[in-house]
């Protein structure tokens, strides 16, 4: 495992975010003037909104998602599409309450100006009923789509409560990849880390290594995921994996403390450690972390 050695942290005026640039499509030749050519685009990643959560880790839980929607609607450059990488809702044993949360979540995010929105489940949405309610509201739990020459693959590692992709989905992935060329640009979206980030905290996907193995022959693969409620960047060989911040509470850095308990809410800095992410896709992928509220 090699860590990325191309970290450029830039302060971006007005965004209060941090840009992370790397040769994330390393198989493609970098072009110094790559931005704003036809075919380049942005997307925004939301993750772990946990609608329905209430607790000390976020006293503002009822408003955080709406604030983030407003912030993204206010971006000077609107993204082509928006992806939600799971845990849209906070889990409940009550099937009726689960559907109420999904309904309300869908209402809130319908205020996004961008209408091309792609959803994925997290274990909180889908593990207790194997994705039944999720599918009623948001459709398939794994799928592909293409946008401006980039092939997106959404993988479901949560509908199986044991956090598996499963052989059937892996076969589906293999069949999809068979139709790709080795230098096609591929973006994988999923909820849990596909690699063993922190096994002692269950920050893994039981058969995630099999998916990575299928993706390895492709030179231009980037994975965006959630679950760990913090920005995190990791390479498995030439494949970059980027975890996003949550919109409900932050979790500690992998292995930094005995338990993966939420970080305490800081009343002086509401929204600290939370946010969404803008991703610019060109020959390189450039990440800018966005705060909950523009401040």
């Amino acid at each position: 495992m090699q860590h990325t050695d191309r970290r450029d942290f830039l302060k971006l005026a007005g965004l209060a975010g941090v840009a992370f640039t790397a040769g994330l499509f390393p198989g493609r030749r970098a072009d110094a003037q790559a931005s704003d050519r036809a075919g380049d685009f942005h997307f925004v990643q939301f993750s772990d909104t946990h609608w329905g959560y209430s607790g000390a880790a976020n006293p503002d839980a009822e408003h955080t998602l709406e604030k983030a929607v407003t912030t993204v609607n206010g971006l000077a450059r609107q993204p082509d599409l928006i992806v939600f990488t799971g845990d849209l809702t906070h889990t409940t044993d009550d099937a009726k309450v689960r559907r109420e949360r999904m309904k309300r979540f869908r209402e809130i995010v319908s205020a996004l100006s961008v209408k091309d929105v792609r959803f994925m489940p997290g274990e909180h949405d889908a593990s207790l009923d194997r994705g039944e309610a999720y599918k009623e509201f948001f459709g398939a739990t794994h799928y592909t789509f293409d946008h401006k020459g980039v092939h997106f693959i959404a993988l479901d590692n949560v509908s199986d409560p044991a956090a598996k992709l499963g052989d059937e989905q892996l076969a589906w992935l293999a069949a999809d990849l068979k139709q790709r060329k080795p230098d096609d640009r591929i973006i994988v979206l999923t909820h849990r880390p596909l690699f063993d980030l922190q096994p002692q905290w269950d920050w893994t996907t039981a058969d995630g290594a099999k998916a990575i193995e299928l993706l390895m022959p492709f030179k231009n693969v980037v994975v965006f995921y959630g679950h760990i409620h913090q920005e995190h960047h990791h390479m498995t060989g030439h494949i970059a994996h980027h975890a996003a911040n949550s919109l409900i509470f932050a979790l500690p850095a992998p292995g930094s403390q005995p338990k993966r308990a939420p970080l305490a809410y800081d009343a002086a800095m509401p929204g600290k450690g939370l946010g969404t992410r803008d991703v610019a896709v060109a020959d390189k992928v450039t990440l800018v972390e966005l705060p909950v509220t523009k401040g």
Binding site: H90, T91, T92, D93, E123, S127, L128, V158, P161, A162, A163, Q200, W201, D202
Partner: peptide, 9 residues
């Protein structure tokens, strides 16, 4: 050791 079969809130 921990539970790795998602079982609720």
């Amino acid at each position: 050791f921990f539970c790795d079969v998602f079982c609720g809130d």
